[in-house]
Design a protein around this nucleic acid. Structure first.
Lengths: 146, 146
DNA sequence: GTAATACCTAAACCTGACTTTAGGTCAAGG
DNA sequence: CCTTGACCTAAAGTCAGGTTTAGGTATTAC
């Protein structure tokens, strides 16, 4: 069992954030000893899941819903699974979009590299979009695909 | 040349957002005809870059800086390149984190699939962390790495 | 001529996710 | 005793990134 300060330390979060999460209902079964929060394995695992779901773009109120389902027992397995499936799909599409943005960044890095060497963008303008060298063609096309 | 409404339509954004971007200085050379904004190729390309940089986690005020550099001419190529390089590195690490979160989601999907079949989490608890089947072991380990 | 559109502005408002503030309890150390 | 440090609460404040509102102009459609 850990105090709020220890958990804050372990996860690299301010204690105020953990109090905020608690207030938002993200630790439904959190124990207290004479007023003081006692974090157990359940809460540590909850925090790991919270970090994951936040990275997956979920809002606090939806994460609370999940935590409530966990507290409710086996009858909510289907809802929990559905929520994760939905998030998984969402996240796969987010990662795909980010990879396209990344290709745009790669292209821009190459572009400015050339521009610096040339001293202007004049030659580059003649290359876009059909005369790009092989090395960067893929990134350019992926970045501009739709 | 396009009106704000046409651009809004093209990019699937509300016109209010385009006005907001303009107010934030994201279109430094934007023309007007008797008060009405006229978006040209420069602004359309700027918008594509804005969408990319936003996805890369950049704030409006930093995007403005980039747009100002573009308006300043060739002397700012090095700054622009450095900004893209920095964003590229940031984004690569973000994508890596998201892939770890995604592996957590994959694991949870599998987990609840099993829990639904079993009717409880009892058997699953005996499998974690050392007796997981090959199919899901990788995702579990990647999700819990650190 | 008047009504519907599409544009304009400044300024107020909204949302999510925290963070800060102000004030209070309690245990241990000097 | 009394100060220090770790905990507690409710409530107010902050920030980014928009969105909405209220009021105005200009063009086109009937």
């Amino acid at each position: 069992m850990y105090t709020i300060g220890q958990v804050a330390e372990m996860f690299g979060l301010p204690a105020s954030t953990l109090r905020y999460y608690d207030k938002q209902g993200l630790f439904p079964g959190l124990e207290r000893m004479s007023g003081i929060r006692r974090f157990g394995d359940t809460e540590l695992e909850a925090l790991r899941v919270i970090e994951c779901l936040k990275k997956a773009g979920m809002e606090i109120k939806d994460i609370r819903l999940f935590m409530e389902w966990c507290a409710e027992g086996p009858s909510t397995y289907p809802q929990r699974k559905a929520m994760f499936e939905e998030r998984k799909a969402h996240m796969e599409s987010e990662i795909a979009k980010m990879n396209r943005a990344l290709d745009m960044l790669k292209f821009k890095c190459w572009y400015y590299e050339q521009a610096i060497q040339d001293g202007s963008e004049d030659r580059l303008e003649t290359l876009i979009p059909d005369n790009l060298p092989e090395e960067i063609k893929g990134a350019y096309e992926n970045a501009h695909a739709r």
